[in-house]
Design a protein around this nucleic acid. Structure first.
Lengths: 201, 201, 201, 201
DNA sequence: GATGAATGAGATTTCATTCAT
DNA sequence: TATGAATGAAATCTCATTCAT
């Protein structure tokens, strides 16, 4: 190969934050192919690093999946609840969070998809499961307080109400993603109002 | 190793309907371990057949998963909609279907779990996806007709409404299964009423 | 490849006792290249089986190495001590065992080499170490009884004496194997006599 | 991960003689874990240098192992034979060397262990093997001269005798190291005397 | 037809070595 | 010169599928 051969591998683009690059790439390829469907060399290539490099930052595929899961859960949590003005009227506040949910699914479709993957459940460790619960807590408190204030219906436990609303949202997004429907802004508002009625009627 | 003579495996119980046995066993082990997490020999053992036998009835693991998916989807559909009296008052009809949903999740937890696995999505073929849609159609028609009759709210497309209700139900069951809550009959009725309000308020 | 290509892999020779074939092949290749120096596919090829087949018989490389170690230790022990006539005069008995040692090294050079490999020490599990000790026990008893009878010198503990004799033997064989000398039958007899003097003088 | 600033590694102690440090560290970690069991970054850390630095002093792991082997062999040789008074009576001289052997094993256990590792045999190059022989030569000459003087038995070739004595010694030490016995000073003297009888009886 | 031992492609993970800093 | 993060070839091990019995 001392000739002017064109048999080059395209050189890997330089990356600085490898850990971040690996997480971002993992999110993308796992969201698309599922955790089990994507071999590590594919993650590596997507991240623009060597296969071995992944193992400098994450002990194993399991650990990678768990750390990714926690990062994305936290990011979602922040996205939804940061800078919420406690004084905003309830219905408006509901609208804001609902819109943030929609925005999240639109802007971070991989994150949404990865979080909702069931595929990684067997991988999840105690820390990840603990985080899931921890993130739920403030949300639950919110439902409870809204019930106390007489705004949300009181004939239903807050855990149950929350599960219903979250499930409705998640499935709405999945339905669109899986091609069962295409959401207009009108649909989104209608869904929001219906969900509000779920909580209050 | 001169004790081979006494080293019996418990003999496998004779099975007549091997295809059925394989499907039932698959449902069970896939529900528990995920499609990717369960090797074919494990399926075979659970079914009480030889590994090779599975391949006489199903061309590949993919095909098995797809056929199983379709069988379970059909079973669910039948369970929900068979013998529904069109004359029953709407609210009561809603109650009946809701209770059937709950019963299904309780009586066929493996089926519920398997159907909701995301794990198999990459496996699903066109036939399976087509069936999914086909099964949705009557349900969708029902929503539409209820809107026409002025019983369900008309400010929302029936596809969207259906996605919301189905999502709420599925997540309620998942929340219980994953240990986030334990459903009393009171919870179930309350959830049903809230869902009714989602449709009608 | 629908032409008369000669690009055949030579078909693998049929083997019946795969477990045995794997052990025999392992012994050979490990003796030659060291446990760490030989990848599993090479073991597989030497055994005339597929790589995966090894894992049907041995849980891991570790387990394979340990089982091999124990089998060879036992074989050596049997070779040395079976059918020893307790009534043979001591010196003659010593001669017989010494000759058996030599024969073992000559006839089973791979076994000798493998057993004396240090390379596998980090692999050895408790069962293997326990077996080592167990095999030593009757030998030790022999030394002790010879001391009691006043045949072997009594100014030295039997464990120590045994260690010296065994070491002398092993190193004699190693020296030949590593090309430091070539043993004539005369050398062997002389070494035997010197070792006898080690025990008795 | 915003706490990087406090995430210090304890700074590596400055080292001047890096080559020596690498050799000393190699000896230690190889003796413990075997040549194959210890990755280069572990050697580097033990030496207090960067991984890459090793490759400035040693072309490859092979070369490192060989140089280390030769250094240790030479050190052993010096330890055993330096300042030996040719006029000391034979038996006393034997005692002195024997004691030096014991001292070496006691004071430089890593060196002893490393030299006796079989693990590195496949690594050894011609230079190392040549050195082994060269070091043996004076020892061999000694045996020969003792035979000529009629002190050592003449019915055995000096190479063979030497192999026996060295093997007896090495195995004595190994037996202790591997926990088969604990050597008292009495044991050591008895072993010495038995070895003397091996040579002279 | 039924079996399950056998297979080998492919997955995860390790580590000797390099090279930008 | 010294470094250690990065690399990818190679090791161990898994599992969907086949095929001799």
């Amino acid at each position: 190969m001392n000739d002017h051969s064109t048999n080059f591998k395209t050189p890997r683009p330089r990356v600085k934050d490898k850990r971040g690059a690996i997480l971002r790439a993992s999110l993308k390829v796992f969201a698309e192919g599922g955790v089990n469907g994507v071999p590590m060399p594919v993650v590596a290539e997507a991240a623009g690093v060597g296969t071995g490099t992944i193992y400098r930052y994450f002990e194993s595929k399991d650990v990678l999946v768990n750390e990714l899961f926690r990062e994305e859960k936290l990011a979602l949590s922040k996205h939804l609840y940061s800078d919420l003005d406690r004084c905003t009227p309830p219905r408006e506040q509901f609208s804001i969070v609902w819109q943030r949910l929609i925005d999240f699914a639109r802007e971070q479709p991989d994150s949404f998809r990865f979080i909702e993957l069931q595929d990684h459940r067997p991988y999840l460790d105690d820390a990840s499961r603990a985080l899931e619960r921890k993130i739920l807590a403030p949300s639950l408190a919110h439902y409870r307080s809204m019930q106390k204030k007489g705004i949300y219906r009181r004939d239903i436990r807050p855990e149950v109400l929350m599960a219903l609303v979250w499930g409705a949202y998640v499935n709405l997004i999945k339905a669109e993603r899986d091609g069962y429907l295409t959401l207009t802004q009108g649909d989104i508002h209608a869904a929001r109002d219906a969900s509000w009625n779920l909580c209050t009627a």
